[in-house]
């Protein structure tokens, strides 16, 4: 007997090719613009209160000065199938979307206990320590399709769910199936090397499914059994940096 949850909606997923990533931070910037993510300023950033739904991790291997940098690793919410953030929320603000097969944060339910962020093994969740929004002309650049979060709210990557919903609605309005690559989140759209690929995992022929079957595929902290929707490709490419 199949799981009824698996039959509804689409299962969205992402593949990030670390051998292609140049660490240019375009995804970070595009994400902030798309999702109304506030700039916290130097002081709060020093306190570790930066608001970033996606960050580019850089690791070093070996002892200084013989260090070798590993490929850049953009880390975002892994949209786990078995998400550790979900069962700990006392107000059901961190819920699993049966329709999109992602984890969503319901801002108007969130009371800011931060349990979810503490239970997230990927540190993908960020907390609004203040109302960072300031009056000014930059407010005109806010995306009207995304809620502006207020102080005391936990937030995280949504796989640009506003674009997913919009894409599904457009396809339904035109009476057709969604094409592969029709919905592109801001990070994938901005990526100059096309290292980030987004699409439907329930469609075996989509680009993201084919890349996921690549021999280089790994998932972050696989041993935790979180069943992430994000897959990383690493190693075996001719794109070697630092040898």
């Amino acid at each position: 007997m199949s799981n009824p949850l698996e039959e509804v909606g689409h299962k969205w997923g992402m593949v990030i090719d670390q051998d292609l990533c140049t660490g240019c931070q375009a995804c970070v910037t595009a994400c902030a613009m798309e999702n109304n993510i506030a700039f916290v300023g130097e002081q709060d950033a020093a306190y570790g209160r930066s608001l970033q739904w996606i960050r580019v991790e850089r690791f070093w291997e070996g002892e200084f000065p013989e260090v070798k940098s590993t490929p850049f690793q953009p880390v975002l919410c892994q949209q786990c199938g078995q998400a550790p953030c979900e069962p700990v929320c006392p107000v059901y603000a961190s819920v699993h979307s049966e329709n999109q097969q992602i984890n969503i944060q319901v801002y108007n339910r969130c009371v800011g206990t931060r349990y979810c962020a503490n239970n997230c093994p990927y540190q993908a969740r960020v907390f609004n320590w203040r109302d960072y929004r300031e009056p000014g002309p930059l407010d005109n650049a806010l995306n009207p399709d995304v809620t502006v979060r207020r102080r005391g709210i936990m937030e995280k990557c949504t796989f640009c769910v506003q674009r997913i919903v919009q894409g599904e609605d457009t396809a339904r309005a035109e009476g057709r199936q969604m094409a592969d690559g029709e919905v592109v989140p801001a990070c994938a759209q901005a990526c100059p090397t096309e290292a980030i690929v987004f699409g439907r995992l329930d469609d075996p022929d989509s680009l993201v499914s084919r890349l996921k079957r690549d021999g280089r595929a790994v998932q972050l902290l696989e041993e935790l059994g979180t069943q992430p929707s994000v897959t990383y490709l690493k190693g075996g490419s001719s794109y070697g940096r630092n040898g």
Binding site: V8, G9, S97, E98, N99, Y107, T158, I164
Partner: peptide, 12 residues
């Protein structure tokens, strides 16, 4: 039902 009662249908 999953589509019509999904949080992301109305809240983003």
């Amino acid at each position: 039902l999953a589509r019509l009662t999904d949080c992301a249908t109305c809240h983003r």
